[in-house]
């Protein structure tokens, strides 16, 4: 029961010619291609016919609404209005964002240009340089986020900070705060 790999097999070869070196298994996979090359037209295709965007939008919104409702139900907290529901299992209390670890208020997504810079410089082998960069990065996001939280009535931030005060969760499931 031996397996042969004929020369003229396209599918298998593309799969198997990807990784040769051991120490850095995927270095050659991650060359400039990701950043610059446009996708080959052959791989760009619609598989199952045209998509009705209106219908899709309705479906997705419906799903997300249902998810939101389920989360509101289980947490006793209305995430769309950012108010606790009456007779909830949990006692909700507002907490000052300053008392919380910064990652609760930091932006999740650094800007694209920053990403690219870190990526390019990340290869030059200087960790100090990189740490420096990431510090700058968080600094910047902090600056951007904090005023927004203080001067506007930014309720979404509030609701996040409120989450900290949910002490009686017996399950280890993560709080569905995105719903």
């Amino acid at each position: 029961m031996c397996v042969l790999f004929p020369k003229n097999c396209h599918a298998v070869k593309t799969m198997s010619n990807v990784r040769l070196s051991n120490g850095s298994p995927t270095l050659e996979r991650m060359d400039a291609a990701r950043l610059s090359d446009q996708p080959k037209p052959s791989a760009c295709r619609t598989l199952f016919g045209p998509v009705d965007h209106e219908e899709l939008k309705r479906e997705l919104t419906g799903h997300l609404k249902a998810m939101e409702e389920a989360a509101a139900e289980s947490w006793g907290f209305d995430f769309s209005t950012h108010t606790p529901r009456p007779n909830a299992r949990f006692l909700w209390k507002a907490v000052d964002s300053k008392d919380l670890p910064s990652f609760y208020s930091a932006s999740e997504q650094p800007s694209k240009s920053l990403c690219a810079k870190v990526d390019v410089n990340g290869n030059c082998g200087l960790t100090e340089e990189r740490e420096d960069k990431s510090e700058k990065q968080t600094d910047r996001t902090d600056k951007r986020k904090r005023p927004a939280c203080i001067d506007s009535s930014c309720p979404s931030k509030r609701s996040r900070t409120c989450l900290d005060e949910t002490p009686h969760t017996p399950k280890k499931c993560s709080p569905p705060r995105h719903t």
Binding site: S24, T26, M30, A32, V120, N123, C124, G125
Partner: peptide, 16 residues
């Protein structure tokens, strides 16, 4: 100098 030499679009990954 080294810094310049290594500036290619590869990624840094952790060792096994």
């Amino acid at each position: 100098h080294q810094l310049f030499c290594c500036e290619v679009d590869t990624i840094r990954r952790a060792y096994h």
